[in-house]
């Protein structure tokens, strides 16, 4: 899997952002958003994190992963709902005419930095 590469990118982005924000203290937590349809596995990300992060600016930080569900908008009744499992029908009216909207996020949301 390619989670190592993802964590390396993540560290690169975090280092840039910390510099931009002028934050110099140790990073206590890193908040990721990993949608259930992002193609990345939180478990594999945690493993990759253990390998990559100890030698970086983020060492010692806790990895917090939020896993937004896939959401869909029904093209017939207009309801927006969470996709239930992988069934892909509107839970309100059972229509199969839906547009999948959320769930593919793979984002660095925020960093928590202690005072230096």
């Amino acid at each position: 899997m390619h989670e190592l590469g993802i964590v390396e990118q993540l560290v690169r982005i975090a280092v840039d952002e910390l510099e931009k924000a002028g934050a110099e203290g140790p990073v206590s937590s890193v908040n990721l958003r990993v949608g259930v349809m992002s193609g990345a596995s939180p478990e594999a990300l945690r493993t990759a994190w253990e390998v990559v992060v100890p030698n970086t600016r983020l060492k010692g930080a806790e990895l917090l992963i939020d896993e937004p569900p896939a959401t869909c908008r029904c093209l017939e009744c207009g309801a927006t709902s969470e996709v239930d499992g992988y069934t892909f029908a509107c839970p309100s009216c059972d229509s199969g005419q839906i547009a999948i909207e959320g769930g593919s996020e793979l984002q660095l949301a925020s960093l928590e930095v202690e005072d230096s």
């Binding site: 975090a14 952002e17 924000a21 934050a23 793979l106 984002q107 660095l108 949301a109 928590e112 202690e114």
Partner: peptide, 13 residues
Amino acid sequence: MEVVVTQDILKAN
């Protein structure tokens, strides 16, 4: 201090 980022990790790609 919280640094809000909201960046796609695959943005370089």
